[in-house]
């Protein structure tokens, strides 16, 4: 089932000229985040967070780095899209909106890069 209007499909765009891809991306990441965030929070409850060794062992153990990487990517993706919509709806001045959208994208790119780097570094330290 397509949720797009025939005219929108023909022109390759929605009513605003864009947005269908954004809409789908936000929903797809939301669905992915349901199991990922539940897994993460349940794991946190069983983790002694004061214990550095236990925390880093958990990050590096088994498939955890993979799930953490997916969690970080999906979280940052979903968060960036969500904050973007909030900015688009509430910031009406053109220059300010442009700056805010740019800052939003940059901040979330930085967050996902830093998070993935951290997971990778913990895994590599465990191998050394």
């Amino acid at each position: 089932m397509s949720l797009r209007s025939p005219l929108g499909v023909a022109l390759g765009r929605g009513a605003a000229g864009e947005g269908a891809a954004h809409w789908w991306a936000q929903r797809a990441s939301a669905v992915a985040l349901v199991p990922l965030t539940l897994w993460f929070l349940l794991s946190l409850t069983r983790l002694p967070l004061d214990d550095f060794a236990a925390v880093t062992l958990w990050v590096a153990r088994g498939a955890n780095p993979l799930w953490l990487a997916l969690l970080l990517v999906a979280l940052c993706f979903h968060s960036r899209l969500g904050v973007q919509v909030v900015i688009e709806d509430y910031v009406h001045s053109g220059a300010l909106k442009f700056a805010a959208l740019l800052l939003n994208s940059a901040a979330h790119l930085l967050l996902v890069a830093a998070g993935l780097y951290a997971v990778l570094r913990i895994v590599l330290r465990g191998l050394a």
Partner: peptide
Amino acid sequence: LCALVYWLMSAA
């Protein structure tokens, strides 16, 4: 999300 990444970075 910022706190989560800070936590991972500090562990790394």
